[in-house]
Design a binder for these strands. Sequence first.
DNA 1: GGCCGAGTTGATACTAGGTCTCAACTGAGA
DNA 2: TCTCAGTTGAGACCTAGTATCAACTCGGCC
Lengths: 142, 142
Amino acid sequence: MSDLEQISLELEARGYRVTPSRRAVIAAILARKNHFAADELAKRCRGAGRATVFRTIRLLNDLGVVCRVLMDDGSPRYLVSRSGHHHHLVCTECGTVQDLDQCAVSGALREIADASGYEIEGHWLELYGRCAACRAKAAVSA
Amino acid sequence: MSDLEQISLELEARGYRVTPSRRAVIAAILARKNHFAADELAKRCRGAGRATVFRTIRLLNDLGVVCRVLMDDGSPRYLVSRSGHHHHLVCTECGTVQDLDQCAVSGALREIADASGYEIEGHWLELYGRCAACRAKAAVSA
DNA sequence: GGCCGAGTTGATACTAGGTCTCAACTGAGA
DNA sequence: TCTCAGTTGAGACCTAGTATCAACTCGGCC
């Protein structure tokens, strides 16, 4: 079963209609190799209007099909990603984004909660750096 | 020495002029008890235009006088805060923001760097939860 | 004092990244 | 077939800024 079909089934299972516009947006998203800006997708995606593209991205975000990444310049991007709680490693050179399996702060949260009196409900973490490939490239050219 | 004077001196030391507009923006910022939106400040601050308010906030951000906090709904706010690397604990109920002394991820970063091959250069972390006061209030009213 | 030039200002236009509105369309079920 | 909720796209609008540019300010120099 293709990813498109899988996502369509997921949408139907949640009571959403799988319309041509939504299929177009999903196909456009799946065609992207790495992250994308919502507006850029709206421009490329001839099969759906801007509002529909934004709505569909939000829908897929709720479904856990895509997730939002904040780049180091603060601009938001979207990424086809696994669902559930995870974080991202963003390469500041080539822009690739890598999922992080473990949650780097889960251990520290309890400590912080104890110290501050807060009941911590959520957190937002992005890591920025240079990926192995870019480092290797830099080492060769240096 | 008042905070306003201290910041003015800091600006002068860096070669910036301390103009009436800047003093008005700084005074308006210092008058805020908690975080504020840049646009909201621009509306309240009669002594300076919108562009100047945004420029001054950026300047103070560079100086480390204020810092940017991302609320849990994604909207940016500014906060008079200590300079240097630190994170924030945002109360999702009353909106107060508390500085976090320790960096919760510094320990985990090396591990992640080793596992991923990334050279980690920076990170962005915000924590969201309910502060002690809001929890106490909820416990009483329950 | 007058001049110069860099720094600063505010109005305004513009941009990115979205959300809201609303009339029109669609499609599943009665 | 009718109905009605879900969906759509155009376009207006919003927030959070940045860019532009002519005008202003101020310190230093003659």
